[in-house]
Amino acid sequence: MINKVVNTIDEAISGVESDMTFMVGGFGLSGIPENAIEALSKMDVFGLTCISNNAGVDDFGLGLLLKRKQIKKMISSYVGENAEFERQMLSGELEVDLIPQGSLAERCRAGGAGIPAFFTPAGFGTEVAEGKEVREYNGKPHILELALTADFAFVKAWKGDTAGNLIYKGTARNFNPLMAMAGKITVAEVEELVPVGELDPNQIHTPGIFVQRIFQGAKYEKRIEQRTVRTKE
């Protein structure tokens, strides 16, 4: 088995430079690579293009990079929870490409799967379709969307083994498996790193071939954005 383990967070993010394109997994704050984001927020890298469904909150997740103005451009589908983000976007400091969530997911998947572009009905007739080729299939207009890849993809899984095989937990899976496929260098952080042979091959979500580096995160805060509960009757 090819050993993908890196022993320090510095090793995990080595090679990261200004002006690079990153993918960052997660939906809201669920399943975000907390340790990698925190380490990146302490580096002097700027001018980053960040592909991530959301932009974190002001003091957690990608909000940490936004606060230091490390991000030049965000490619996301929903950015509603971050006041600093909205301020930078409305003032023009931050370039933002908002794209439909399903198109974002499929563009990452396509990037990792060697499919350069695809047609989708999502966004036809809207701002999203501006400048994009339109073709009719089955009597319905579709727009051409291009695949996305990145210099680095930072993903987070529940368990992983030293060969880079990953298993996610719950809805923390979201964009992580797709982005893992689309990174030139995919850095996976896991809550529990185990030796090869411990994970059931039938249960692997991301095969290790897509992962270049893996490490066990030092700690996970796993913040909840909208705590909703019901009371016992």
């Binding site: 996301s76 589908s77 929903y78 950015v79 509603g80 909205e86 976007m89 409305l90 933002v96 908002l98 794209i99 439909p100 969530q101 399903g102 198109s103 989708t120 999502a122 966004g123 809207t126 999203v128």
Partner: peptide, 10 residues
Amino acid sequence: MVKGMGGAMD
């Protein structure tokens, strides 16, 4: 208000 479309367009 520029929050994004999320999955609504799809």
